[in-house]
Design a protein around this nucleic acid. Structure first.
Lengths: 224, 224
DNA sequence: CGAAATATTGAAGTTATTCAACTGGAGTGG
DNA sequence: CCACTCCAGTTGAATAACTTCAATATTTCG
């Protein structure tokens, strides 16, 4: 039922018995909130989810935009409570996998835990890469963000040339750590340079390769 | 032998058999490098270690400064190769725990894997908190860095009022994502304000509470 | 339709970076 | 022991990039 790509088939089948069917959610509804007791991990089945954390100044920092197949809540295992908020950006369906179920299923052998270990490990490696790529320019980041969306859509067989952004400029900014005005200006400039065609949340990718180039900081460019 | 604080005693004893004794390292020597095949995790026994990742522009981004008790290499589980470099800042000793050993020990029950899951989970939560705290000012970050050092030393029973920084200004900058000149200026200013007394790498903390205050962004403070 | 939310655009302001010069220890060797 | 060198650190001035504030435009939705 719930597709956890990282788990071997047999485990998936075992899980299927214990997991409730996909849980429907409306846009704006929270899957869990920071501080809630950790009682389950969630697998996104359809729709978009956003995870974020509230900063000391009250502003939110977006940690990820999630597509079906993503697993949420793993960072809560140690703390015993969720460390971030997960909210639906669109109508969505999630699978709830209670920790009790996890314990029962994984008791027999370690395969499931292995899978979770790998998943956490991958997530951590990703965070490290993220940390390594701040200090990039606004152009670099916005281009990187777009390429990320494009590639994830390609991988899932969705239309990667034209699609609808499920999040606001402010949310993109909170993800890339830029002001929303900067996002807007950057997108406008990309449009002027014929890289994309964007209007509000509808976007058409005109030159994906150029975007891919823009992801990386330019070498030895003084005047730019 | 090797203290992995997160593991229950019985597991520790089991591990002790298989783990080689503390491995001596000289300052500047690498424990592992990014890209090396993942064959073991390491526990730091004594000395300081630094983990970092090389950015596209060749500069290094420091991801962590490590004290005894820290476990390294977990982020490599999924990728199969290390995703960062770990290097000794001082002479140090590490325990090497080959994955073969891990597999053998954990085969019997899941306790060890549980521990690793928790550890990874905690690490990930920490990374998330880190991501939530960039966009802080240079003052905030440097103060946060110092408080972090102070608290870690306190927790280990080391002198937290006066100690020696094991890393250069450049390395602090690579950790906080600031230019080394900015680190220098900020420390000088902290000294002027009687928060610390710093000379080269010798530091004396004069007002830890003020530093703790400074960690968070100040609201509505113009002149500082 | 009107109101609220979202997005765009301009101008001014801020903060950290960059470039550059200089200082001061630590280590080396005559 | 002193001169010499090298590297880490400090400091200053100019610059660049993004933010902030402010005004306007466009959607969306009740």
């Amino acid at each position: 039922m719930c597709l956890c790509a990282t788990l071997p088939d047999q485990e998936q089948r075992r899980l299927a018995d214990s997991v409730r069917l996909a849980w429907p959610m409306q846009a704006g509804e929270h899957v869990f909130r920071s501080g809630d007791p950790f009682d389950a991990i969630y697998a996104l089945r359809s729709g978009w989810l956003k995870t974020y954390i509230r900063r000391v100044d009250g502003e939110e920092r977006v940690l990820g935009f999630h597509l079906p197949g993503d697993l949420l809540g793993l960072e809560a295992i140690d703390a015993g409570h969720y460390g971030l908020d997960a909210v639906a950006l669109t109508d969505a369906r999630v699978c709830r996998i209670p920790i009790a179920t996890l314990g029962r299923v994984s008791g027999t052998d370690g395969t499931l835990q292995q899978g979770m270990l790998r998943l956490l490990s991958r997530e951590l490696a990703g965070r490290n890469r993220w940390l390594a790529s701040d200090n990039l320019s606004a152009d670099n980041r916005v281009a990187g963000f777009l390429v990320e969306l494009i590639e994830r859509r390609e991988r899932r067989g969705l239309d990667a040339a034209a699609f609808r952004l499920p999040m606001s400029r402010t949310e993109i900014g909170a993800y890339l750590n830029l002001a929303h005005e900067t996002i807007s200006r950057t997108l406008t400039r990309f449009q002027k340079n014929a890289l994309i065609d964007v209007s509000r949340r509808k976007i058409r990718v005109l030159d994906a390769d150029a975007l891919r180039q823009l992801r990386m900081p330019l070498r030895a460019t003084r005047g730019n």
